Computed example of a mutant assay.
Amino acid sequence: MTIDESGIELFVSGRLCLFGEHTDWAGEHKGRNESILEGKTIVVGTQEGIYAAAKRLEEKVLRITTTDNHGNKTGPEELILEPAALLAVARAGGFLSYVAGTCYRLLVSHEVPGGLQLDNHTTTLHMSKGLSSSAAICVMVARAFNRVFDLRLTTRGEMELAYLGEVATPSKCGRMDQACAYGSVPVLMTFDADILTVQRVQLAAPLHLVLVDLGATKDTTTILRSLQRAYPKPETPHQEGLHRLLGPLNHRITGQALQAMAAGDTRRLGELMLEAQRLFDELAGPLCPEQLTAPVLHKVLSYAGIQDLIWGGKGVGSQGDGTAQLLCRGPEEQAKVCAVLTSELGMECMPLTVNPVAAG
């Protein structure tokens, strides 16, 4: 964070779920069904994100300008900082709903003596690609109010307000998405009904990842609605399969992934990514085949030209044809994967290197 005449400069990263997607909201059902296990996800922030300048206004409004990752600007648009009006905008859906939902949660829980100008002047994070772009803007709004008005919120506090803001919209996200508040540190998040715990993950060797924009479309809301019908209690064999996937199978895979990360065994980590994808296809895919068949994702994961360069890979976020994550064998292979997929498949690639860290 820096302060100059234009206000406070802020950055919020996207987030990449390495393992455990969908177990955040599934684990929150534990209080309604004792057979449900805690959700466990391993998450890391991306180097890409959203940048904004925030400054105080005397008027009780939020004046926001946004910029997408292609440089296209929208706004300024104004939201009156009045709870009922904000809630109506949040429930209407669309991009501004995330902003309005977070503002609503802030206003009903904190005294905010004024308004805010928020200029999202630069965005390097790709939208609607499973990298938590909606959560990033929610965290950005919470962080901007926190820093400008000195609300004394912790990172967890910003994350909680962002989550509550997003679920005030038609989005059915879980708490994992707001892990972007933690930046580039890999963390293990555990979801036990309404109790969330977050701890840093030991990483003994760097992870050389490539995030591949599949250039297709996905509908996260449809995916979530389809899968969430299986909770809290399954009623069909396919729904029972989803409970196994997001419960005991996920516990095993995330546990083994943590061991591989602590040992610096990236080859084993890649194998676990492939296994996680296979199980997801088998047990989650039938519940939303129109979104989760994901032909473009599977074309990339099995593409012959990169098999000798990667240890493994899987889908990102809610899955579907949004983004693929590939774990490369090293930095040179990371660059080659980007070159191959760009030149041969015309796909945009984003290298992401996660540096070693001690457990915390």
Rank of each mutant, 00 (worst) to 15 (best):
L151T: 10
E166S: 10
L125P: 08
G165Y: 03
R152W: 15
L153E: 06
S134H: 01
M140P: 04
L131G: 03
A142N: 00
T154P: 09
M127E: 11
L125V: 04
A136N: 05
R156W: 14
R143P: 00
P170G: 05
T155C: 10
T154W: 08
R147H: 13
R147N: 09
L153I: 06
A142T: 00
A136H: 05
V139L: 00
L125E: 09
M159P: 05
N146K: 07
F145H: 09
E160V: 12
S133E: 01
T155N: 11
P170T: 03
T169G: 07
E158Y: 10
A162E: 00
V141D: 00
K129E: 14
R156H: 15
M127P: 07
G157I: 13
T154A: 07
R156L: 12
R152A: 15
D150Y: 03
G130E: 08
S128N: 14
L153C: 04
V148M: 02
K129D: 10
K129C: 10
L161H: 09
P170Q: 12
S134I: 02
M140R: 12
G165E: 02
M159S: 07
V148C: 02
F149Q: 05
E158K: 15
V148H: 02
V148T: 08
E166C: 10
V141S: 01
T169H: 07
S132E: 03
G157C: 11
V139S: 00
R147L: 10
E160S: 14
T154R: 11
R143M: 06
R156K: 13
S133K: 06
L131N: 05
F149V: 04
L153D: 03
